[in-house]
Design a binder for these strands. Structure first.
Lengths: 146, 146
DNA sequence: TTCAGTGCAAACAATTTGCAGTATT
DNA sequence: AATACTGCAAATTGTTTGCACTGAA
C-alpha cells in the first residue's frame, strides 16, 4: 500500500462527497502516513510546519475528520486528554496494549477478536463500522523497575 | 451489590491510601451509582447541584479520579470529546457497542473476550489492569430509518 | 490543631468557529 | 465566476489549578 494509492483513495472519497481536493488535505494525509505510529493533531501540525508546509491547525483538524470518515485513518484515545491518529494502511485492524506506567503502546491483532466483534454486531443487529479495543496494564520493565 | 457496600469499599480505599473520607466524596459515588448508565462529569455535577447537594466541579473531577484509581468505576470515551463514567457495580466487565448514527449505547460482555485479553497480556508480559473495547456500528433502526 | 480537601474563579489544553481572503471547480 | 477551503485569532468545551477557607483526623 503506497502513498499514491492512499492519496488516490482519499481523492475519490472527497470527490464522491462533493468536497474539494486541496493540496493541504493531501499533505495532511501524506504527513500522517510518513509518521511512524500514532500522532496527535497538535504534533502533526507542528511537524508539518517544521517541514515548511504551510497549513493551519484548523485545516489539520478538518482534514483528520474527513480522513476518519473516509476510513483511511484510525483514532485512538489513550490515557491523555487528546486523540491519537494513525493511518489504516494495510486496512489491517489492530488494537492497543498500553502501559499505565510508562505509556508504551504495543499493537496487537487477533483473528478471534475480529470474529467476536462481528458476532456481537450480528447479535444486536448492528452494521459494523469500526472498533477500538484498548487494554491497559503494566509492562514488564515497569513492574520490575519499581 | 448495594450502595453501602460500595461506599464501604471506597472508604477503605481512601483510608488505605491516606486520603480523607469526606462527605462530598461519598456523595459523588452515591450520585454516580444512582444514575442509570453512563454520565459525564459536567452532568453529574449539574445533577448533584439540582438535587441540592453542595459540591464543586473540582471536587467532582477529583473524586472521579479517586474512584477510577480504586477501580470502583469505569471511564469510557464515545464519539464526543468528554468522558463518560459508570459504576463497576458487580465488578462485571462489560464493553460498548455504539451506534455511529444515533449514539445509542448497548453493553455487552464476553467470556471469550476476557480470555483473549489475558492471553494478550501474558504474551506481552503485561500485568492486566483494565480494558475498554468499543465497537462502532449502525443500529437497525438507523439503517432502516434512512 | 493540623493540613488535606473544598469551593470558586481563573488558567489551561484540545478543538471548533467566524470571517475575510484564496484557490478549486 | 462562484463558493468551498484556508489561515488566523477568538470562542468554546472539558478539565486542572491556585488560593483562602473549612472540616476530618
Amino acid at each position: 500500500m503506497n502513498i499514491d494509492n492512499v492519496k488516490e483513495r482519499f481523492s475519490s472519497y472527497l470527490k464522491a462527497k462533493g468536497h474539494r481536493i486541496t493540496n493541504e488535505r493531501l499533505l495532511v494525509l501524506e504527513s500522517l502516513c510518513n509518521n511512524e505510529s500514532h500522532i496527535d493533531a497538535e504534533n502533526l501540525f507542528i511537524k508539518m510546519r517544521g517541514r515548511g508546509l504551510k497549513v493551519s491547525r484548523a485545516t489539520v483538524y478538518n482534514t483528520l475528520q474527513l480522513l476518519l470518515q473516509s476510513n483511511l485513518i484510525k483514532r485512538s484515545h489513550f490515557g491523555e486528554s487528546h486523540h491519537h491518529y494513525e493511518p489504516f494502511l494495510g486496512g489491517r485492524q489492530h488494537h492497543h496494549l498500553v502501559c499505565a506506567s510508562c505509556g508504551k503502546v504495543v499493537e496487537f491483532s487477533s483473528e478471534l477478536l475480529n470474529r467476536i466483534q462481528s458476532d456481537i454486531c450480528d447479535k444486536h443487529k448492528f452494521k459494523f463500522t469500526g472498533s477500538a479495543f484498548q487494554i491497559t496494564g503494566v509492562c514488564r520493565e515497569c513492574s520490575e523497575g519499581k
